[in-house]
Design a protein around this nucleic acid. Structure first.
Lengths: 167, 167
DNA sequence: CAATATTTTCAAAATTTTCTGAAAGATACA
DNA sequence: TGTATCTTTCAGAAAATTTTGAAAATATTG
């Protein structure tokens, strides 16, 4: 397998994976392209290499910057903006996890808490509260665990992983 | 808030959350409906309550059974099939995680391994290998950790969570 | 076995999500 | 300031996903 072929394979696979992670295909592909690029790329380079439109490129680069997965890099003597990817796997992962925690888990916890306010007394109300309560408990524990993991630095994280795996 | 309102709110929210978890809206809503139902429901009941078509109902019930999130329950004297949800939060979570591990993480690991076979020697090849290798290492560790967590029973899981949270 | 009830299938329709590209908005340079 | 280059926006187009419902298949009952 030649380098170019390998890079393309990586970009394609990463794109597919991304769609399962709250990231759309193009956004994931841009990230992948920048991850395996040895130099910063301009919006134009990205457009050309992935065969996508200007607007699509721009929108997704900005989303990636918003997620802190891609940074602008100024290239002296160049007027265009150039971009590089965050290459630290742990940072990439933790930023994605953080986003999803904020956008999915935390809103769900708020809703579950709200649902505890259901009125009435009968058995069916109790059963409902019980189900909601179980899920809430679980969600809160998961949230706290993620929080703990996220504030740890990479080394800490690998230590935790190792403890779990070797246990 | 009345019980009915609370149940509907739960079903809607769970439906939205589901779409972020590789489960489509309807599939998640059916699961939610069964989770807060005090008795087994038939496909017809589900159709009526969620206002969805027969085909949609059938397809998603079967997907849920395939994921072991919903079971058939035979009601004596009834010709229809009735369904109940898995109410153990830990089981629900672990089955979803297991599915995603099999369908996303493991295929990615295989691709990353394949990509290590890139030919050539230059610096750019080495850089590519380094990126791929970092991701592969991380993916394998995550996979092993998930495996460990999944084969643990619920108590074990909560113990692990607790250790992490209280650390 | 025939009649009826229930479940399953799947092509077409509806909906949702993503992408395009022309136009408007910035920014840098002379 | 004028011109050229680059970036952003967004309405409409395209693509992907989900849903419908009629028809076929299957199961149950008498």
């Amino acid at each position: 397998m030649q380098l170019e072929e390998a890079k393309n394979k990586f970009i394609q696979s990463w794109g597919t994976l991304g769609t399962h992670w709250g990231i759309n295909r193009t956004m994931a592909q841009i990230l992948a392209l920048l991850l395996v690029s040895d130099k910063p790329l301009s919006a134009n380079d990205i457009m050309a290499q992935l065969n996508i439109s200007m607007g699509n490129t721009n929108m997704n680069i900005r989303a990636l910057m918003d997620w802190s997965l891609v940074y602008k890099e100024l290239v002296p003597g160049e007027r265009k903006d150039f971009y590089i990817a965050e290459k630290d796997v742990w940072k990439v992962t933790s930023r994605i996890v953080e986003h999803r925690k904020r956008k999915e888990l935390e809103p769900m916890i708020r809703i579950l808490e709200d649902l505890q306010n259901v009125e009435g007394e009968g058995e069916s109300v109790e059963e409902f509260k019980e189900v909601v309560n179980q899920i809430h408990l679980f969600a809160v524990k998961s949230d706290a665990t993620l929080e703990k993991i996220l504030i740890a630095d990479r080394n800490n994280f690998f230590n935790i992983l190792m403890k779990l795996v070797l246990k």
